[in-house]
Design a protein around this nucleic acid. Sequence first.
DNA 1: ACGAAAAAGGAAACCGGTGTCAAAACGTAT
DNA 2: ATACGTTTTGACACCGGTTTCCTTTTTCGT
Lengths: 352, 352
Amino acid sequence: MKMAHSKRLRRMAKSGPAPTINDVARVAGVSKKTVSRVINRSPLLKQATREKVEKVIAELGYTPNPQARALALRRNFLLGLLHDNPNAQTVLNFQEGVLDAIRDTEFALVVRPVDRHSPAMLDDIRNFLEQQRLYGVLILPPISENDELAALCREMGCGYVRMGSAALDEAEQLVQSNDREMVEGVVDYLVEIGHTRIGLIEGPQGFRSAFERREGFLTAMTRHGLEMPDDALVQGNYRFSSGVEAANRLLDQNPHVTAIFASNDEMAAGAYHAARERGVDIPRDLSIVGFDDSPIAAHIWPPMTTVGWPIREMGKAAALKLVAPDTAEAKPSCFPARLVTRNSVAPPSKKI
Amino acid sequence: MKMAHSKRLRRMAKSGPAPTINDVARVAGVSKKTVSRVINRSPLLKQATREKVEKVIAELGYTPNPQARALALRRNFLLGLLHDNPNAQTVLNFQEGVLDAIRDTEFALVVRPVDRHSPAMLDDIRNFLEQQRLYGVLILPPISENDELAALCREMGCGYVRMGSAALDEAEQLVQSNDREMVEGVVDYLVEIGHTRIGLIEGPQGFRSAFERREGFLTAMTRHGLEMPDDALVQGNYRFSSGVEAANRLLDQNPHVTAIFASNDEMAAGAYHAARERGVDIPRDLSIVGFDDSPIAAHIWPPMTTVGWPIREMGKAAALKLVAPDTAEAKPSCFPARLVTRNSVAPPSKKI
DNA sequence: ACGAAAAAGGAAACCGGTGTCAAAACGTAT
DNA sequence: ATACGTTTTGACACCGGTTTCCTTTTTCGT
């Protein structure tokens, strides 16, 4: 009720200049400093004064000017999101997570897609950070694996948290997932239902995530005493088309594989495509497992078994590590991925 | 060279407090006002003075503090993006477009996913606008169709541009696409290759885009003198699962349709799913056309014919309408969609 | 060479908050 | 009533820019 009332008052003011702390102070008959204390929940205020001021604040519909606050405090309330992730859903989920963390705070999230391939990338980001003076930045993979970028943040005194698949950094600056173990789990699962000739479409050179996933894969294969011929391991670049090519190469070189693990869903979808063109049925003739649980995995036919990360939770935790590093929710830095079982996996067919 | 040099100097300063306009003024031996004039490219400066100051700026690696600027100018340089779009790729493309527009300016983009179904949505957004005092906001569909939201922006004196499928607003506040005509074009195309019994999966009630697309569809059908039985028109809610249900209902009620147009790609993909489960082959037994050209359209099998919007360009134009309304690039408000022909359409098969 | 007009530059106030430090108000012991 | 310690409040400077208004310098016509 009171709320609605104040809104009405504010609206009736007909969008004149927004009330400032001075207006509040004058109307309430106190000094601006006292109003400031109310806003900042200073404990050394008499209850009566606090209430008096709060009433005026509500009546006037006063909101502190964030720019003025930022100036006085010499820090602002802007979080940055640096990303060059090809998977839109991942980026958006992460954004949602960040928003979960900063909703009802004065923080806001500013986004900055970056171009990993531009030689000027670091300078661009430097300018961006210099200009905007962000409170901190969140860095999504794959660019989160760029150590120069992290160094740049440190150098510029800008807080940062990276999302990455391995121990890139200290726990305070990292949210990670256990994808290596998960990939091992995928192999275990495939072996368990009978597969022995499993192909791997790995991600591009130089990506930590690609490396981790390959290592997890190979570790598990070795553990199971399974052979891993060189030509059952092909490389892609995390994109759909590279998945098509990689799967074709893999199946040409190694027609007996009964299952393929691809380092991300896009490439796995590419493998679907290649399989379909060759007339091989999924999952009867070929099982495919992807990684990321992006929307395509659910939409493709047959729905794809894949590994999902709790991206949104990771986004939330990442943001909390910056804005409230001492809360429990900000502490964990490793978030368990889980196998999302759908219909792209079946025991190997008898033939061959 | 010079650049690198200045960067080094700045770095050597070891991240002390960033230099301010006062530092520049002192070192250059001029007043802060003069430095301010240099920054703002005031024309009434002697060339020599300007160069002297610019040299110092470069040496010190000075960048104006955006918060201080915002405070003094009583406006900030933050654009907001309000979205509740289920299609992540669309949102991200739009973001990229906005970034295209504001790259190398002092503007930044802050994002705000909203929950259309929350009753507190408008209040949330009001608080957000009140708190952040954005320069302006960009509003993506479907929430862009909410007139209360637009009214709120006007009331709060916050500039806005909506992306919408119809004449929701004045051209200054709108980037739109000609989807109605495009839908007519889709029908023309289907009719041209021989289809006469075409089903429609329309979007949810109350969405302007859904309305426009349905009208375009019906207009074209009438124009071709084709019958449109009530049961060939079913409703979905723009999501994958609703597409599955809608297609099943449609095919149950009307087994003779040879083509389906769905109001977006998600639902079209759902229709694929339904078709597959019923053993009907796409495109031999059933042609499907979607709308949006989202990634799923390219990835699904067979690749889907759909209608694509130039989202990124629209994002750029929308941002320019706010930050540089007088430039030519900010002028056009209608961006032509185009038919993306892939493999989900074929002439109707003879049988029946 | 001189005066007037135009150009260039500076001093001080201001934007709307916060920090420092001292003053005022209050409660209590003497 | 007085002195004293504590709590509460306020005055004022400051954050780093811009704006207003005024002074100094330069330019130029005669």
